[in-house]
Design a protein around this nucleic acid. Structure first.
Lengths: 168, 168
DNA sequence: GAAAAATAGTTTAGGCTTAAAGTAATTTCA
DNA sequence: TGAAATTACTTTAAGCCTAAACTATTTTTC
């Protein structure tokens, strides 16, 4: 309905710029979702097949790997963009596998610091090496500069989303 | 491996093209993951808040909305990129809400056709309208042509991934 | 046409995830 | 200082999701 109006007003822009349509945005969102899902499913499959590990556990270990002194559960949940309760469960399972350790925070008795054990560091190193190659192979059709450009544009999208989410 | 060659040949590109590094690809993957997660979390939150519905249910209804004659569970699971068992469960819950119906396939007695009920169509229409505006607002900082360009690049990435996944 | 293979869907066990409510410790501030 | 608010984390209930094993039916193959 609105489509007809704008087409009448602005013959140049045609359907593409039609207000209230938002086809391009929806299309982008569906594409983003599908692409992400495709990669994620494959990574999950390989992590399980090769290392009998899940993506969330791999993610958590990846976070810890960057902080040799460990981090609190709250910090982890922030960085992983998941709830505290989720982290509690993941930490429990990784503790059982002895790839991480948990100790009381020195000054704040509510808080705990988790970090990779030696076993965890070794295990993660092995996984990260292959993981890196999987991504490289999957992204192989893109040139270096295409990767950089795409990263940049996604950065802009991310900023756009953040603005909208914060405002609402 | 081919990368090494090219790095040797092209001294200008230096670290950026360092072989076995793959920083740009990893960075892109993390950015993709984070962006997707940000949007998805917000959409889930709003769907729940406004319509007391989950994203998977919304997705399933969106698939059916495009096929007035309905589709089989297998077709659904393919389009949604999830397992058959997952669809079975979702369909059960949506049946209970009476927004979809299920009937035997005419010629293949293993198969079932599900489609939106009138109630389901009405409900989905309401949700889709708002959903579209949420996406439009979240993507608002991007111009129309940026959306199109980003969609195109993600298409290339998707193709790249498909090639790698199919080969392996 | 009957055995074998493939297909459509369901069930099961287990992990992931969330929101909401709960516990314990710390901080704020009146 | 001590009550109120906040913070860090855990628990719980319910839904999502998967792989693997299963049932029922259809298709293939000999």
């Amino acid at each position: 309905m609105e489509l007809e109006q704008s087409a009448a007003l602005d013959a140049e822009s045609k359907i593409a710029d039609a207000p209230g349509d938002h086809k391009a945005e929806l299309r982008l969102w569906l594409r983003l979702l599908a692409t992400n899902s495709l990669i994620e499913t494959e990574i999950r499959r390989r992590l399980r097949e090769r290392f009998d590990v899940t993506l969330p556990r791999f993610d958590l270990m990846a976070q810890l790997e960057r902080k040799p002194h460990g981090m609190t559960l709250g910090e982890l949940s922030q960085r992983m963009m998941v709830t505290n309760g989720n982290v509690t469960g993941l930490v429990d399972r990784l503790l059982a596998e002895e790839v991480i350790s948990r100790k009381q925070h020195k000054s704040d008795r509510r808080s705990h610091i988790v970090s990779l054990t030696e076993k965890g560091r070794r295990q993660f190193a092995r996984m990260a090496k292959e993981h890196k190659d999987w991504i490289a192979a999957m992204f192989g059709e893109l040139t270096q500069s295409e990767c950089v450009a795409l990263t940049k544009m996604l950065g802009k999208l991310k900023t756009s989303v953040r603005i909208a989410v914060t405002q609402s």
